[in-house]
Simulated scan of single mutants.
Amino acid sequence: MAFSSQTPRVPTNWSITGAVAADAALILLFAGIGRDAHQRGEVLTGVFQTAWPFLAGAAVSWLLLRAWRAPLRVWPAGVGIWLGTVAGGMLLRAATGQTVVLPFIIVALLSLGIFLVGYRLLFAGLRRLMARRRHA
Rank of each mutant, 00 (worst) to 15 (best):
G41M: 05
V20R: 05
T45K: 14
I114R: 05
P8E: 10
V10H: 10
G78A: 01
G97L: 03
P8W: 12
L110W: 01
L83E: 12
Y119S: 13
I27Q: 10
G113C: 13
W75Q: 02
T50A: 09
V86D: 05
I105S: 01
P53L: 01
V107W: 08
V10M: 09
S4C: 03
F48E: 02
S61D: 08
F104W: 13
T45V: 06
R35G: 02
F30S: 06
G18D: 09
W14T: 15
A25T: 00
A21G: 10
G113V: 08
P11K: 06
P8Q: 09
V100E: 10
A2W: 15
L116S: 00
L55G: 05
L92S: 03
A31R: 01
L72M: 13
A56D: 02
G32T: 09
W68K: 05
W75D: 02
G34T: 00
T50S: 00
S5R: 15
Q39C: 06
G84N: 10
A37W: 10
A87M: 14
L110M: 10
L91F: 06
Q39A: 14
G89K: 08
L102R: 05
A95D: 03
G78V: 07
Y119F: 15
F123R: 11
L65V: 14
G34C: 04
F30M: 09
L44A: 02
T45H: 09
A37H: 06
A22Y: 14
V101I: 11
A19V: 10
G46T: 02
A24I: 12
T45M: 11
L63A: 14
G113L: 12
F3W: 15
L83R: 04
L116T: 05
L26R: 07
A59K: 06
N13K: 13
G97N: 06
R9H: 14
T96F: 15
P53K: 06
V43R: 13
S111Y: 04
L116V: 07
G34K: 02
T99D: 13
A24L: 12
V100H: 06
R66S: 00
W82K: 05
A59F: 11
A2P: 15
L112E: 00
F115W: 06
V74K: 05
L29K: 11
P103Y: 13
G84H: 11
W82A: 04
I81E: 00
F104V: 08
A95L: 14
A37L: 14
R40K: 06
R9L: 11
L110I: 14
F30I: 08
L83W: 06
W82V: 07
G89S: 12
T17L: 13
D36Y: 15
L72K: 08
L110A: 15
A56W: 01
S15G: 10
L92C: 06
S111D: 05
F30E: 04
F54K: 06
Q6I: 09
I105D: 01
V20T: 13
G84E: 15
G89T: 02
L26P: 12
G32Q: 12
G32C: 08
L109F: 03
V86I: 09
I114C: 11
R73N: 01
R69Q: 09
T7M: 09
H38E: 07
